[in-house]
Design a protein around this nucleic acid. Structure first.
Lengths: 180, 180
DNA sequence: ACGGGCATCGGGCGATCACCTGATTTTGCC
DNA sequence: GGCAAAATCAGGTGATCGCCCGATGCCCGT
């Protein structure tokens, strides 16, 4: 059986319902990114193996995926045969990380590259501020806060305020204890 | 010098700027609630004393205020003279909690009274889900998720997704470690 | 001098949120 | 059986978010 879905939310629902052998995911999807789908869907389909097949990938995200126990990561610079082979390998219980992805992992390792200002915005948001109140707090325009916020969300692969905070915590940018 | 402001955000800005002797706050304000104003403004005006003067008050919120070291809490069921007296007492460095507020504190003590379903919604949101994806996850309509979310936010005094998560953590409804 | 990264701000737009009122069904309990 | 709380869903509205575009100015390395 083969099924395709249009976004992250449907992916979670479909995996949860059908518990497929393999789920091939893109990282950048509307609704929920690849990491979120992995973490959420795995709760309902522990047997399913996850292969991330994506075009662009931040080392940041990649590290999170590996840490989360992703079964395979392929960048789209690979040939068709490589992808097919990766699917087979994952099916057989092996972990597959493409060379290009592995290179990124090695080259990275440090914390996400957030600007001072971006970090300040994230921390303000993490303290419960809206764009507007954070802007008042930092003495800048709400538009600027919005720009920083958007840039950070792109870097971390988040699509909402909640997942922004989640990703920031996972990336070590925020101390969970600071939320107390 | 006396100044009045229209909402929580302006309150933070004004306290930060003028560092008044006393800030008299309502709890339910647009933009930022009393607890948030207290926590944030105190960073910039450590000398300022805070008196919460509010109409309705959940025991939940009250406990958080007291724990945060609020200098005074008055419910609006008090007479005018009581309020004036409270301001004077706070000015003189005493802590003032009105009888009605103290009764609530005593009667409470346990965790916030969130429904099973409400808690499930909050936890879904805390895992990065939007209303819509949380609805798909729980198998209910997005409208229902929205209702639960709104109700929880009223109970906790939150006005945004970020502050909802913050309040939930502070109320012990969410384990900060679960965000990792 | 030139490019490049960063911070700042603005317009604009569709999606979502935050919140209201109101309604029906389900559930637990006396 | 009937009451009360909880859960479900809907319509609607204004504010905010998420994100696209472009523009300016600063600093910095070559």
């Amino acid at each position: 059986m083969v099924q395709t879905v249009a976004n992250g939310i449907e992916a979670i629902a479909a995996i949860r319902k059908h518990r497929p052998d393999i789920a091939i995911l893109d990282y950048n999807m509307p609704g929920a990114n690849g990491l979120e789908v992995l973490l959420e869907a795995r709760r309902w389909a522990p047997e399913t193996r996850f292969l991330m097949l994506t075009g662009s990938m931040q080392a940041q995200m990649l590290a999170q995926l590996v840490e989360a126990g992703i079964h395979g990561v392929m960048l789209k610079d690979g040939s068709e045969a490589e992808v097919v082979d990766a699917v087979r390998q994952v099916r057989d219980g092996k972990k597959v990380i493409s060379d290009s992805a592995r290179r990124m992992l090695a080259a990275a390792g440090e914390t996400a590259a957030l600007t001072d200002r971006e970090l300040a915005v994230v921390q303000a948001i993490a303290r419960g501020h809206s764009n507007i109140s954070a802007a008042a707090l930092l003495g800048i325009s709400a538009k600027t806060v919005d720009t920083h916020r958007t840039n950070v969300m792109r870097k971390l692969g988040a699509h909402s305020t909640a997942s922004l905070l989640l990703s920031a915590v996972r990336a070590g940018l925020l101390d969970p204890d600071s939320l107390r």
